[in-house]
Write a protein that binds this DNA or RNA. Sequence first.
DNA 1: TTGTCGGCTTAGCGCCGACAA
DNA 2: TTGTCGGCGCTAAGCCGACAA
Lengths: 361, 361
Amino acid sequence: MGRAQQQTLTQGEHHPVPRPDQLLLPPSSLSPRSHSSFPPGEDRTAEPVHHQPTATRVAMAQPGRGRDPELFAELWRACAGPLVEVPQRGERVFYFLQGHLEQLQEPTDSALLAEQIKMFQVPYKILCKVVNVELKAEAETDEVYAQITLQPESDQDNLPLICDPILPETPRPVVHTFCKILTPSDTSTHGGFSVLRRHANECLPPLDMAMPTPTQEIISKDLHGSEWRFKHIYRGQPRRHLLTTGWSTFVTSKKLMAGDAFVYLRSETGEQRVGVRRLVQKQSTMPASVISSQSMHLGVLASASHARKTNSIFVVYYRPRLSQSQYIVSVNKYLQASKTGFTVGMRFRMNFEAEDVPVKK
Amino acid sequence: MGRAQQQTLTQGEHHPVPRPDQLLLPPSSLSPRSHSSFPPGEDRTAEPVHHQPTATRVAMAQPGRGRDPELFAELWRACAGPLVEVPQRGERVFYFLQGHLEQLQEPTDSALLAEQIKMFQVPYKILCKVVNVELKAEAETDEVYAQITLQPESDQDNLPLICDPILPETPRPVVHTFCKILTPSDTSTHGGFSVLRRHANECLPPLDMAMPTPTQEIISKDLHGSEWRFKHIYRGQPRRHLLTTGWSTFVTSKKLMAGDAFVYLRSETGEQRVGVRRLVQKQSTMPASVISSQSMHLGVLASASHARKTNSIFVVYYRPRLSQSQYIVSVNKYLQASKTGFTVGMRFRMNFEAEDVPVKK
DNA sequence: TTGTCGGCTTAGCGCCGACAA
DNA sequence: TTGTCGGCGCTAAGCCGACAA
């Protein structure tokens, strides 16, 4: 055990959506070459653009009830970061009790814990089927997490030695998204948010460059469905994209600090979403006064133990931004890792970076 | 069970400190009769006043390290309200499992819970000795709570039929304290806080009434040790006491609403404390993403069960402002209640009122 | 006695281009 | 290309007594 290796498990992940920074742009693309009226959009080299009349787009952007679950999932992933993986529904996974306990803060006395693990007779790892996955976000902090329902397999003695069949990937919608780490100027009360030219060109709805100072209103929603409006303006000497009116309210409400990141997303149908990815975890999301850490550990233990004995479902929360230890690992990933020589039973770690950087294919 | 009766258990409680509203004041006491210089203080009819030179007082107000634990406890009690009782260290109490589970929000399926109670073989109530009590406050909300360490008694079969010996009460320091429910004007950004004349006369440090508009700076700390400064001024026509500069910062930081209450306290040595008592509980102090409510319930169950079986200590959190059910009841209170005809096993309830009202002796 | 309001002053929010890294 | 700053207009915070409940 001890210090785990810095290792990612994302080799197998293929983003179906080309990310902005993977696209090649001519350096001169900033000058407004197109003087046709609305919409111009010719700057968007190599982007999958499907122009639709604006009216239709807006109509589609407001589906009848509530939020679009597909787009929600995309926003969730954008806020979680490119390295975060969530097990798929129907997949088989290993549940590591110790990793789960480590996700809880304030570890209790480890000797006592060991005694209690023995008392509950919980095996080291449990083979489970993923019954359900719900992506969620903490109301107070916007921290993303997944509520995962697991069902222990009845046969825990003959663990799988070959890979499970690969489940069909659910198709993901095409989105334009960026993520920018906030500068001190971005978060100060002195001004607005400076949109990087690349991000504006590739993700924001196109402005009417025929106007002397092009402006539009960005209407977007966050993970909770709350609406946020920003004035997007292209001004200054030299010209640059800015978010002004509405931005400071966002910063204040989300309690953003320099170093945190702003996440923006636009779907093909024109729906817009915003979110945050924090540099550091806002401390003590857990108020100390609910139950003792002792009881919390025992509760996790007892839940796993009881589910294992009765083959009944149990619910866990996976918080990818909090813990660096991934305590739910798909059978296939696990076998692959074992094969390539990792210690069986290691903790799985991943790097975090706040801003999405280009990944070489 | 069902709906419990509205009943308080505070008959036995005797406040060693006379509260302001228990004191008789002549209606004319507001006019500055004393024109002697500093300090005047003659308004303080019937108060235990021990004048000391100001310099000495200030020196004593800053003890070497950290906060005065006695004064902290007084502030805690003032914020908790006059009806809140906390078990005493060394005392014997009954611990009611079901009441404890009810304090947790989001109750799980009660049938499942009953099954699990059976599984853990936890008795209905557990006779315990109070090993330790720590008064605390939630960092985010200032909600007061007590961390109570309990040790089950080895003999759980022969429950006490007569009262335990009464423990000596620890002496409590003399303090001047008030608690005022905030009006819309108090919490609006338009102005400051209006100090009721009685409260100012009886609790705030005396002003120099020889000045045309008497003013002083109130320097105080909250339950976390954070310092708060307020300008206390006596002005207007007719004259009244106000807290101005510094007040709005306090309101914003503590997220106070009209209906919440402001708590102020001053010790004999001149140390000042401030706190809040909220009208309604700030919702969802517990973020949903830590452990499942299922596991939380199981954890409480397992903790109590394990402690009971091994006669080892366990820790619980008592949140007097959250739940109306008191799940830790001293043996003596319990016997007294049984004697006077209450259903054994009832839940203990109490009234809450935000502002301290005079209690007839 | 004290809650609310109109009047007034002023701090700081927030929009702008300048400038330089 | 974009982060930071000085300038400045303007909103809202916040202090005051008036007035009435």
